[in-house]
């Protein structure tokens, strides 16, 4: 007996409100379990300007930090939810300034960080024409922001 709708231990559909509440709580408890398994973000570079990235931007960001190791520092996420925040909070604390580098118009990851930590990332580099973030694109935007 396998069911999709809210169901009890026997697998049968139930409208019982107490079962509903307990099952919602059970599902929410999994967040903590999953958080234990989530990968730590990767950190590299020695600079004062903290670049924050996630996903396929890694190649371009790594190249930038290797070219400007004493100016730039990178914290990069492969797994973004549940969000591991301990290292990020330390890095934001010690950075001179921070830049969220993302492939969307609205700064989704910067907003997620604000939601989860209360901290605002200072600047944003946004690419939203559907094409990959490149070394040249990011470098040009960082110069415009006068952080590089």
């Amino acid at each position: 007996m396998i069911d999709s709708d809210e169901h009890d231990e026997s697998g049968h559909i139930t409208e019982d409100l107490d079962v509903r509440d307990r099952m919602v709580q059970k599902r929410l408890h999994r967040h903590a379990d999953v958080l234990r398994d989530v990968d730590e973000p990767l950190v590299m570079g020695r600079g004062n300007v903290l670049l924050i990235g996630w996903g396929s931007s890694f190649g371009a960001l790594e190249e930038l930090v290797e070219r400007y190791p004493s100016d730039l520092r990178l914290i990069h996420y492969s797994e973004v939810w549940p969000l591991r925040t301990e290292r990020l909070l330390t890095e934001l604390e010690h950075a001179g300034t921070s830049v969220a580098v993302e492939g969307n118009a609205t700064g989704q990851f910067a907003r997620l960080i604000a939601q989860e930590t209360g901290k605002q990332v200072a600047h944003r580099v946004a690419r939203y024409d559907g094409r990959p973030l490149t070394f040249a694109y990011i470098e040009a935007r960082l110069r415009e922001l006068e952080v590089l």
Binding site: M1, I2, D3, S4, D5, G11, H12, I13
Partner: peptide, 19 residues
């Protein structure tokens, strides 16, 4: 999902997947 989809729940002894 629907009233019809509840029918298997009322059958004795069969296997059920209500998706």
């Amino acid at each position: 999902i629907g009233q019809a989809a509840k029918l298997p729940h009322y059958l004795r002894g069969v296997n059920v997947l209500d998706g």
